[in-house]
């Protein structure tokens, strides 16, 4: 088998995860730069002069009195507010695919299927497998090239490898047939609950 042997847990908001990481790293860099600069000035690494000046002195007042200063500060504040609003909206953005395109034939028109129709059918079929207590599914990708994500909670009485085989050889075959797709890239996360009895050995 090729591919990774270990993975990070899946998320329904991959965009938010990436954005949060990038923005927080940038904020960390800015904080670090501001802190280091303050320490360099205060500890006289950059010379004796600046360390003995007050943080806001006459030179700063002169700049603040310039006509352009406060409008620029106001515009920067609005930019910060706008970027913050964008950051907040990113948190609610999921990769969930709402509709699937079943038929892309120009002559035959377009057939769309609600994503929940497929995910509910898959959830029900997986939940009926031996050893499964609960299954949740969602779709991502594009309407013509969907990806299926499955989270399956096991009861611990059946080997996870058997559940994996049943999902691959039975449930996903049905899903592909229903969608008339040759490929349906799927990620399955199996969850073994604490305290379940395993009939092994």
């Amino acid at each position: 088998m090729s591919g990774p042997t270990a993975l990070a847990p899946m998320t329904r908001t991959p965009g938010a995860v990436r954005t949060n990481r990038a923005v927080l790293a940038l904020l960390g860099l800015l904080l670090l730069a501001a802190g280091v600069l303050t320490l360099l000035v205060g500890l006289r690494v950059l010379g004796d002069g600046p360390a003995d000046r007050t943080v806001v002195d006459g030179a700063v007042d002169d700049v603040a009195r310039a006509g352009w200063f406060w409008p620029v500060v106001g515009a920067a504040a609005l930019l910060v507010a706008a970027l913050s609003a964008w950051w907040l909206t990113v948190q609610a953005r999921t990769d969930r695919l709402v509709r699937l395109r079943l038929d892309d034939d120009a002559a035959g028109g377009r057939t769309l299927l609600e994503g929940t129709a497929l995910t509910r059918a898959v959830e029900d079929e997986v939940a009926d497998l031996p050893g499964v207590t609960r299954a949740t599914a969602h779709l991502s990708g594009t309407p013509s090239a969907p990806r299926l994500h499955l989270r399956v909670r096991l009861d611990g009485r059946v080997d996870p490898a058997d559940v994996h085989r049943a999902i691959t050889g039975q449930v996903l075959v049905h899903a592909r047939a229903a969608l008339e797709l040759d490929r349906l890239p799927t990620r399955v996360e199996l969850d073994l609950p604490r305290g379940a009895a395993r009939a092994l050995g």
């Binding site: 270990a6 490898a161 691959t168 395993r198």
Partner: peptide
């Protein structure tokens, strides 16, 4: 941290994984 361990499979389109804590519980 990659907290999920991948289950061997024959279908390249399907990736199945189980959490490390799940392996520990087993």
């Amino acid at each position: 941290r990659r907290t999920l361990l991948v289950v061997a499979g024959t279908d390249d389109d399907v990736v199945t994984a189980v959490s490390r804590t799940g392996v520990g519980r087993a």
